[in-house]
Amino acid sequence: MSDAPADWGVLSELPGNPLMWVLILGELLVFGALFVGFAVVRLLHPEMVLAGQTSLSIPLGGANTLILVTSGYLAARAVLARSTSKVAESRWWLAGAAALGACFLVIKGVEYADKAAQGFGIETNGFWTLFYLMTGFHAAHVMMGIIVLGIVGWKNSVENLETGAAFWHMVDLIWLILFPLVYLLR
């Protein structure tokens, strides 16, 4: 056999566990499909989408963008610290990343409560269905990401940290596309 046990083909060259990259690719496909769906809905019903977008809060969305990007930076610092064997330091960076993730969720909660108070629910119309689905799925991933950061902080190894950070950056990346697409592009 020519295959060494650790050979995952192209996935071997990526940092962290190759199975995480299979998951990340799957996630990108799911969100990618939803983004395409959003574009189609916007093409078919431009007024409905515009009306929905004007009800969204750009300051809250913008604040959340800054929070997630900063959180991603802290996760990257954690990997950097761990690669020079600074375990305790890496845990502090991870805790900071997770705390910012929690801030994101709190702001998301404020935003949802505000939209609900204005009477916008998941069944209101096509725009709101997609808004709640996409941001809701994303928020669920932020929650999962916080748990993942906790697990890799506990089982602290370079590979685990790279794996956890890869997931966290994916959550980051999706928001960086979702925010302009849903909130800004009008």
Binding site: G26, L29, V30, A33, L34, G37, E123, L133
Partner: peptide
């Protein structure tokens, strides 16, 4: 893909409309 792909059976049976998105996206995968 398969667990949320269940959504493709929830079209037009009285379930909320968001299942059409969940079912379409996940069952494609």
């Amino acid at each position: 893909s398969g667990i949320l792909g269940t959504g493709h059976h929830y079209y037009w049976i009285g379930t909320p409309g968001y299942w059409q998105w969940i079912g379409s996206v996940f069952s494609t995968l």
